[in-house]
Write a protein that binds this DNA or RNA. Structure first.
Lengths: 153, 153
DNA sequence: GTTCACCTTCAACCCACGTTGAAGTCAAGG
DNA sequence: CCTTGACTTCAACGTGGGTTGAAGGTGAAC
């Protein structure tokens, strides 16, 4: 069992489509692998890179950011330097996202109890409300600009 | 002061681009307004609709969902019916998003303290970790599939 | 009459992250 | 020889929420 995989085997191991792996390579997130009669062959280093990429993506990094992280390894600089900087830069975005999502959640909970027959009179949809009274409105949703976090499906 | 606005005035009132308003109309999120020599004129009803749309978007609804909400008003059904259903349907997505974002935050916080010189040995990037030990790894990020919540900038 | 600000339409473009399709290559097995 | 299956390339498409640009209309002011 010499650890050399075709693109199909590698893709299967990570639950990816082969097109995704080619896409990563085309965008220099993964290096060009060795080839046997035109076909890509991957070693354990590629497996680890995909492992790192997988976790990095789930941690909220874009492919561009993941490329920076992975290429810092190739540049010989200690990994924690790039990692710390990327993480510190991403943290405020994620924290803003959390705040925003919690405001959404609070609003949606209130909305499930709404009894208004017309949206015209529903205080849930009033903007710029005075923060004096019971605060049912949209003022908590006023959080502006959540930065570059994808968090998508 | 008869409350009739041009598209530019309406856009300014909401901090929107006029193209956005035309886009909403083209996608039937807003109805076609009255016209004066070809140009759109908007009344207070349109202002309220944009207000509702604005809050709905910030609450996490897509334009499609906002259209459903706004058109239920035209259909004569009580507003709370559509609102409750939409909100109840969106809530799990938002709660998943919160969980996911909090997992990201925890990982990023750990990452800012990482001292690994190589990503190959960094436990932060190990997947499928045994939940036995100190749990520094990526297992909390394993939350799969966050549904249709945008939350973008 | 021309300049100005504002409006109109329609099609094309943007972003990230890939997917899909057409057309072709290659090695192994029957 | 022929089929099968996995691989190759490249270009085009899809998403959501709009933006941008070209080309033109309209009314009022100067």
């Amino acid at each position: 069992m010499n650890e050399t995989l075709t693109i199909g085997q590698l893709a299967q191991r990570f639950g990816l489509n082969t097109s995704a792996i080619r896409y990563y390579e085309a965008n220099r997130v993964l290096p060009e692998p060795r080839r046997v009669s035109g076909q890509r062959r991957y070693g354990p280093d590629a497996v680890r890179r995909l492992e790192v990429l997988d976790v990095a993506k789930r941690a909220g990094f874009s492919l561009d950011e993941a490329r920076v992280l992975l290429q810092s390894a190739d540049a010989g600089t200690p990994a924690f330097e790039a990692l710390r900087e990327l993480a510190a830069h991403k943290l405020p975005d994620v924290e803003a996202l959390i705040e925003r999502a919690q405001a959404m959640r609070a609003w949606l909970l209130t909305a499930t109890d709404c009894s208004c027959t017309s949206l015209d009179v529903c205080a849930l949809f009033d903007r710029d409300e005075e923060p004096a009274n019971g605060s049912d409105g949209a003022e908590r949703l006023r959080i502006t600009h959540v930065g570059g976090v994808a968090a998508g499906a």
